[in-house]
Design a protein around this nucleic acid. Structure first.
Ligand SMILES: [Mn+2]
Ligand SMILES: [Mn+2]
Ligand SMILES: [Mn+2]
Ligand SMILES: [Mn+2]
Lengths: 220, 220
DNA sequence: CTTATTTTTTAGAACTATCTAATTTAATTT
DNA sequence: AAATTAAATTAGATAGTTCTAAAAAATAAG
């Protein structure tokens, strides 16, 4: 059973929204996340239901099936492997890869993706710190929390970003926050939720609640 | 002005047929070369005419415009660079690349193709010996003739293949004919056009007219 | 427990790409 | 030059994706 490019994009969006812990994924959420209209989503949900990658009862909601999960993870695997390729081999900046990977993820060739994986030395994480599912769709995810949720004096390591938009990533580049950086929370401002951190025991950094919410940390 | 994937495929086919020296490219030729029906071709020719990548008068024929030429060469450049990537970096066999490159050539990103070119060290030829146009669409093509057209005792070097089908390429692998091989024509059979050649001054090889017609040689 | 609001779905249209069958035009034969 | 054959185009359908506007269903408010 083959999915079209559009179907793969919808399914991926549904998978991501499901993972965000939301009780259920709404038509409007999907529409917002892939910049389309709710009417188009309703139509696609019916189709995805027929293809049995989701279980769908109209007006009631949906749930990904095991098959849908497997297919979504395959697409995510391809997306993230291509991102690694673009950064590691073609020297793209981490804020330049998403749009291209969005296209490359739809190339159909099992051989290609296996060879790419080997060529990149079986990477476990993409340039944004997100885990790369293996060929069977298994993902080993690390326990990670938003920087915003850390307490004063708590230490950890930046392992991923929640937001992969160029604007956010370039901001992080500018202030010197990067994946792998060791950090410690020096202060938190009650009033606006902003945070002051120490990066690599050298540099202090102030960041808004918004920013701190989009940085994921492995605490130590 | 952007072309769709289908439009790029048609334009590429038209370009290739034009290059084959045919006086003019027929609707049926195009249909045959991209496995589609003449009716679909007529429809697409009208659209390509409107987009001014070809000049088209119905029932009379068509001609690629300079714009169409430029766009076709861009797609061909991408196709061939990806083929080099697949063979050189991902260790695909030369008969395994075409189908995947057929997809990859449609990825839209100028940065990607520039970086890929640099990463591959600005290759001049693809795995089948076909020249890779530069970023401006310039192709430097070598004077080459079909092995079938060589005379007895004439020497040369295999530089390309006309047919890139897996069946043909695997046959060449099997008998030990490869791009770069130095050859000399030992005998030609009048009756059926078959040829006997010496490869790398070591090995003699018999091949049918059909095979000899699809091997391109740079004579010395 | 009605009424209002929000969410979701359907109806109808547009655009792309493709096909089969019918028609039109061009090229060949007699 | 008329008749036949071949090539090319048009007509009409189907399938996929997306949109706007309208309708229906579910949820929230009074
Ligand atoms: Mn995509
Ligand atoms: Mn990523
Ligand atoms: Mn193609
Ligand atoms: Mn090639």
């Amino acid at each position: 059973m083959e999915l079209t490019t559009a179907e793969e994009n919808y399914l991926k969006a549904i998978y991501h929204l499901s993972e965000e812990g939301k009780k259920s994924v709404s038509t409007n959420d999907i529409a917002a996340s892939i910049q389309t209209k709710p009417a188009s989503v309703s139509d696609m949900l019916r189709k995805l239901g027929e293809k049995e990658v989701i279980q769908y009862r109209k007006y009631y909601g949906l749930q990904i099936t095991p098959l849908g999960m497997r297919l979504a993870l395959q697409t995510i695997r391809k997306h993230r492997l291509w991102e690694v390729f673009l950064v590691d081999k073609l020297h793209f900046a981490w804020d330049e890869v998403h749009e291209v990977a969005e296209q490359l993820e739809h190339i159909q060739s099992t051989l290609l993706i296996e060879r790419l994986d080997a060529y990149l030395n079986y990477p476990k994480f993409d340039p944004h710190g997100d885990p790369i599912p293996d060929a069977f769709g298994d993902v080993r995810s690390r326990p990670r929390i938003a920087l915003q949720e850390m307490g004063i004096d708590q230490s950890g390591q930046i392992v991923a970003v929640k937001d992969s938009s160029p604007a956010f990533l370039r901001y992080l580049d500018k202030v010197g926050a990067y994946i792998g950086a060791r950090i410690k929370v020096l202060d938190k401002v009650e009033f606006d939720g902003s945070v002051e951190i120490l990066v690599d025991q050298k540099k202090t950094l102030f960041m808004s609640k918004d920013v701190a919410n989009n940085i994921l940390v492995l605490t130590s």
